[in-house]
């Protein structure tokens, strides 16, 4: 009976995730790892926006492979996601998010994930999404750099903004970016997106 209940619950969750969509701004350390987690989890549709190309220096933390160096990150990401879960609909936009129109690719997704790198772009993006799409849940991350101190990471919720936050972390200009911590934050963001879509697990 317990097994049957669990099976019903898991089928319900699968269906809900399949019908849901997540937009990801940036396909670097945060975005690439979050996208992989969401594709594995069975999110139905992912929208990924980035303008960069894969570089050798990205491979220490971003979900790309040696033979993808030089490719657009969005295209490389699509390839990788399709190898894991071909059932996901993937829309990619190979462009830079510009101030004034940052919300455009994300108008019809269920949850937006901020996965940008520098603090200024993060701030602008958050301000634009919160003011132009006020009903849209937005997951963001601040304080990704460094290593260890995993227990300082918290979810700071403020209305529709869910911030994966280590307020004591240094900027990546002053500290290293390390794969486990970047992936931890990325997966934290992905996990928050799923929690928002499914509702709190009681």
């Amino acid at each position: 009976m317990v097994n049957l209940m669990n099976k019903i619950k898991s089928e319900k969750i699968k269906k809900k995730l399949k019908e849901s969509s997540v937009g990801i701004a940036g396909a670097g350390g945060l975005g690439s790892n979050a996208a992989i987690a969401l594709a594995r989890a069975g999110i139905g549709r992912l929208i990924i926006v980035d303008f960069d190309k894969v570089e050798a220096s990205n491979l220490d933390r971003q979900y790309y492979f040696l033979d993808q160096i030089g490719k657009n990150k969005t295209e490389a990401m699509k390839e990788n996601l399709e190898k894991i879960n071909p059932m996901v609909t993937i829309e990619i936009y190979n462009k830079k998010l510009e101030k004034g129109s940052m919300e455009k690719p994300f108008k019809d997704v269920d949850v937006v994930i901020e996965a940008l790198d520098n603090a200024e772009t993060k701030t602008t993006f958050i301000e634009e999404i919160l003011s132009k799409l006020p009903d849209k849940p937005l997951v963001a991350a601040s304080g990704v750099a460094g290593y260890g101190h995993s227990d300082r990471i918290k979810t700071n919720r403020c209305g529709n903004l869910y911030l994966c936050y280590d307020e004591k972390a240094k900027s990546c200009d002053e500290d290293v970016l390390s794969a486990p911590r970047v992936a931890l934050m990325a997966n934290w963001e992905a996990s928050l997106a799923i929690e928002i879509i499914l509702g709190e697990d009681k």
Partner: peptide, 24 residues
């Protein structure tokens, strides 16, 4: 941000200030 110098803080309000730190 461009309104920080114009907007007045109302009494009894609840304010959240979130620092954005580079890295991603």
């Amino acid at each position: 941000k461009q309104d920080f110098s114009k907007v007045l803080v109302p009494n009894n309000s609840n304010i959240a200030v979130i620092h954005m730190i580079s890295g991603g």
